[in-house]
Design a protein around this nucleic acid. Sequence first.
DNA 1: TTGAAAGCGGTACCAA
DNA 2: TTGGTACCGCTTTCAA
Lengths: 346, 346
Amino acid sequence: MPTIRDVAKAAGVSVATVSRVINKNEYVNKDTEQKVLKVMKELDFKPSLVARGLAGKKMNTIALMLPDISNPFFPEVARAVEDVAQQYDHNLFLCNSDNLEHKEKSYLEIMKKKNIDGVIIISNNISSKDLEHLRETKIPVVLLDRPASHENYSVVRANNYKGAQLATMHLLEIGCRKIAHIAGPKNLITAKERLKGYNSITNEYPWFEQTLIAEGNFDVQGGKTALKKLLADHPDIDGIFASNDLMALGALKELKKMGKEVPQEVAICGFDGIYLTELSEPELTTIQQPIYELGAKAAEILIKKLRGELTETKIYELDVQLIKRESTNGFQNSRQDNTIIKGVFR
Amino acid sequence: MPTIRDVAKAAGVSVATVSRVINKNEYVNKDTEQKVLKVMKELDFKPSLVARGLAGKKMNTIALMLPDISNPFFPEVARAVEDVAQQYDHNLFLCNSDNLEHKEKSYLEIMKKKNIDGVIIISNNISSKDLEHLRETKIPVVLLDRPASHENYSVVRANNYKGAQLATMHLLEIGCRKIAHIAGPKNLITAKERLKGYNSITNEYPWFEQTLIAEGNFDVQGGKTALKKLLADHPDIDGIFASNDLMALGALKELKKMGKEVPQEVAICGFDGIYLTELSEPELTTIQQPIYELGAKAAEILIKKLRGELTETKIYELDVQLIKRESTNGFQNSRQDNTIIKGVFR
DNA sequence: TTGAAAGCGGTACCAA
DNA sequence: TTGGTACCGCTTTCAA
């Protein structure tokens, strides 16, 4: 690989001049510029980004830290981040943390050592301390899907609370009269907010009790287990709002196995809007998060930050949307108390 | 961030000595070593990997180039690659190529400029020329899921031919008497091999004809479209082998919509063994590729190569496995010619 | 408008 | 066993 010196020599100019041509930010005589460009072509010169990085420039690399790329929610985020990064001539470092603090810390260290320009973090347990540590190094951070509590960082997230309300209200509106919730892990803010949204609606109903809430681990198995528990306690459940789609799909499977018809006997609604929800049978009603947009927004903000075009740190809350599909369409209300809901909603 | 010179000064030794302590490959006096280590702790010294890279060392970064991380097959590969990379203290560059040649080329250029140590490529159209170009730079390459034709590169792939045979034979064995194939894109070697495998079996049967093969685009929609075409031409199809799981799932959906019972009327088998196959209703019989292992193997080979521990370039063909599930379990053979198959298989 | 040269933060060779 | 220092390939003053 030819170096900048080779080019300079071949073009009969100084290294500095070649550098100027490369970076097009200082005046260079048109003729010399042409000459240099020509030589660069001929030699197939490719400037070393490593050397440039050492000389104080950005490496044009951002990192995306997430729990597990093989979990269906994240690939779409990653895709979005990479698309935007590419658009701005940046590359993507992928970090699977498994939500393990030591892996997260280790990655943060590596980012410093590799002069990563910025990082998008999706994590539940990054401590403020670690983030502060990162901040000393001036590496811009964007938090994805995280709480508002980190005042010092930009946060991109979806409106989980409202989404949960939409889901619960939808189940009520189609006639469900005993709606359970399969909640996510307590330590996840997103899960907590969805639970709150569910609570804010169901609280007002006489049939509501705490045992209508079961916790799952955001995966398919968690949904199955939670469903079994719920149905054991409350055989008359006729509506289920699961805190994410994977658990909803698990619950769906389990209901089938138990011989319950969905949606005729039990209606079910998920959260996230991952691709799988269109493939299940019946197709799953869900609260669609703008997954791609979340990633894209985070990437845009990050890149603007590290370009210095953006300094404010604020919260970007993206809107969610109810997608009605088969798993709630066709529910048969077999009870008499149709009127309860009306009193509440008007 | 403190530099190596800061450490040297604070410890009262030379830069060279500090470097020796860092790299532990030359003898250093125990006492000085301790002293230096202590100072490094105190100053929270983190050696710049960029500087090290410029000085001729490896960047400890490998790239994974694939069509689209949001396609369900790839995240698991990526996960495997990253796990192994991490194990060997390497990081992962993620490149979505969308199978677009210009994106692939552009990424290869960037890899050179960033001193990427090695790359795993999953692509259908990387030309040998591009690869040769990469080879000049001595960047080791491992091809994943690609043809044997690239004699100069290590290749990791699954036994597609055998897998297709397994699938087809399974359908025959459960009693199917007219088996169609939803093939993948003609330009994909994997798809071609699966088609060959299907052909090798069905060729021998009187009912076989070319119109029992329809081509899809390896996605859900492709499966739907292909199925409609097949059933229009051959309403009596009772078995379907799809070249990948997504198309099988699409076909499944479409069959449902048309009122055909799966597996009672039509049995169906996919290929890949992605996670989705366990979630569909009915659960999908499929040929399981060792997806994670494919990625892990590729990463291991690559890292061994760039460490110089491996120089031979060969083909690693991993075994596939038939996973029998509901989509073929319970097929009802309504015909009389049960005996045909027996003649062939014994 | 261009060139010379001092870094950037390490590695590694040569001496001592 | 250690220190001095050229060098990796580029950027960026400072002068010319």
